[in-house]
Every structure is written in structure tokens, then in C-alpha cells.
């Protein structure tokens, strides 16, 4: 089955991973800007990073027939440096017209601080001014519930934002309901230890239905599995769910959400896919 990974950090992965993803049915991915594992020291570091995201990764993915898209921002961890964050936000519009740039992301909160919130609001301002879609990171572990509620407060406090053009990622059992109820898209991240497992993601599809719901690997430089989406597909099949339901979550929903961005020029695979209804 073809699938699209809506959230994966390929800059941290090897070229072999691109090949493996291609072999497993992945036809494309969207890569949000994130934390490199260390705090960068200048706006020029981000300019180079954005060049890597918008140019180099697209070429690397293309070697294996994968279509690569990206999102730009300064992430929540580095948002503690407010002055650097403002320099980066000011520079981002240089890249917004490049094909494959889908919007602003992954913005969000990490430790739910005042500085993080300040920079989050300034990213929302940028997105609203340039009519960009938004991809959101929600915090980890004990900070997730509080941070997600704070993020929803800020999003809902800005009447310029179209909720259908915002993806709130890394939802889990205690945060998925308010995200969907307020009309946003929700992403479930499949991680080996934290976040969500393929089994729990399948549970949430059963509990909330497939509308506005996606699954992603968020593969990065830490413990993560870039081929986690196929694990979800297998889990859904083992439970007896239909191919059409699975396909909606892993392919059609990403197409619908990302298709709202004018820079999402996606070419569907031209090989007819065999669909087996169970």
C-alpha cells in the first residue's frame, strides 16, 4: 500500500533510509524544521538549514522516487532565545515561495514557558500574514497535556486562522479529543518508547474515526523508527480493518491536508495499486 509520512526528519537519516522507505511503499514525506540536538548560534545557521531542507533533501529523496516537502520555523527548544528566534522568523519569508515549502512548522511548546509562548504567537502572526498552513509540535510526557491546552488556547484566540489548515501533531489519548473537537487535524506519532505505539494509534482510529487523523514516524536522530507507518498498516490489517480505511489514514488524509498548500505539487504514483478489500 502506498503511504505518505506526514512528519519525518530526513536530514537526520541516511540515504539507505530513503531507499528502505521507498521499498516499503512510501511515496512522499513532509519534513518540519526541528531541533538539531544542539542550540544553533546564529540566523545564518538556520538559513543553511532551510537550504538543506528546501534543496538538498528534495534531491536526495528524488533518487528513490520519493517526493519531499518541508516546513520552516525555529523550534520550541531554541525559542527560549527570543532575539535569535525573531531574526529567524524575519528571515523565513525568503523561502516561502519555494516549491515544496508547505508552511510554518513544527512550531509549538517544549517546557511551556513564557518565551516559548511568545515565539509561538509570533510564528502564528507570520503564518497569518503570509496565509501559510501550520504544523504544530506538542510537548513530551508530563508536559504534553498542559502544553497542548495552551497551544489550543493560542490557536483559538486568533480568529484569522482556519482550523482546517492546522495540524496538531504528537496527540495521544489525553489530547486527541480537544484537538479534533476544535476542528484541527491531528497527527499520531509512532515512537518506540514515548508518544504512541501502532497499537494505540489503531485504538484511537477506532475510537475517533479516520476523519482529520494521520499517523507519522517522526523519524529523527533519536530513538525512532522511520518505517513505523507500515507497522501501523500491519496492525490495522491484523485487526481486520478494510484497506480503504487504512488508505484513508495513511495516504488520502495527508493528500487532503497538504493539498491545501499552494506549494504542494504532488504527482501520484503512476503504477496502479492493487487494493484488496477484507
Amino acid at each position: 500500500m502506498y503511504y505518505f509520512d506526514p512528519h519525518i526528519h530526513m536530514v537526520s537519516r541516511t540515504t539507505d533510509d530513503y531507499e528502505t522507505l521507498s521499498r516499503m511503499g512510501c511515496v512522499g514525506m513532509s519534513e518540519p524544521a526541528f531541533w538539531a540536538g544542539f542550540d544553533r548560534g546564529s540566523v545564518e545557521s538556520f538559513r543553511d538549514y532551510f537550504r538543506q531542507l528546501t534543496d538538498f533533501e528534495k534531491k536526495r529523496a528524488g533518487q528513490f522516487g520519493l517526493q519531499h516537502f518541508t516546513w520552516l520555523c525555529i523550534n520550541a527548544k531554541e525559542a527560549e532565545n527570543v532575539s535569535l528566534s525573531r531574526e529567524v522568523i524575519k528571515m523565513i519569508p525568503e523561502f516561502l515561495d519555494i516549491p515544496g515549502v508547505l508552511g510554518i512548522g513544527e512550531i509549538g511548546l517544549n517546557k511551556n514557558t513564557k518565551n516559548e509562548s511568545t515565539i509561538f504567537l509570533e510564528h502564528l502572526e507570520l503564518a497569518a500574514n503570509y496565509e501559510q498552513q501550520i504544523l504544530i509540535h506538542t510537548p513530551h510526557l508530563e508536559d504534553k497535556y498542559q502544553g497542548t491546552r495552551m497551544i489550543l488556547d493560542m490557536l483559538c484566540g486568533d480568529r484569522r486562522l482556519d482550523h482546517h489548515r492546522v495540524l496538531v501533531d504528537h496527540v495521544e489519548e489525553h489530547t486527541i479529543r480537544p484537538v479534533l473537537e476544535k476542528g484541527f487535524w491531528a497527527g499520531m506519532t509512532l515512537y518506540p518508547v514515548s508518544k504512541c505505539t501502532p497499537q494505540r494509534a489503531a485504538d484511537m482510529v477506532e475510537m475517533y474515526g479516520p476523519e482529520r487523523l494521520m499517523v507519522n514516524s517522526a523519524g529523527d536522530w533519536g530513538p525512532s523508527k522511520p518505517t513505523a507507518v507500515p507497522d501501523f498498516i500491519v496492525e490495522m490489517r491484523r485487526r481486520g480493518h478494510s484497506e480503504s480505511l487504512i488508505r484513508k489514514v495513511v495516504y488520502e488524509n495527508p493528500m487532503e491536508f497538504f493539498g491545501q498548500s499552494q506549494n504542494f505539487q504532488f504527482t501520484p504514483p503512476d503504477v496502479p495499486e492493487t487494493i484488496t478489500e477484507t
Binding site: 511551556n112 509562548s117 508530563e142 508536559d143 497535556y145 488556547d153
Partner: peptide
Amino acid sequence: PNRAEQLQLLFSRQYDENWRQNFSL
């Protein structure tokens, strides 16, 4: 029936709806 959600909330920091006021945002 919602044990997973309850466990998640048990291990979560509390949300204060006045957070914006507290941060002067």
C-alpha cells in the same frame, strides 16, 4: 473504559486556564 486516557492525565502536569494572564501574554 478510558483507562489509557486516565493514566495519561495522571502523569500530566496540570493545566491552568489563566496561564496567559500569569505570563502577561
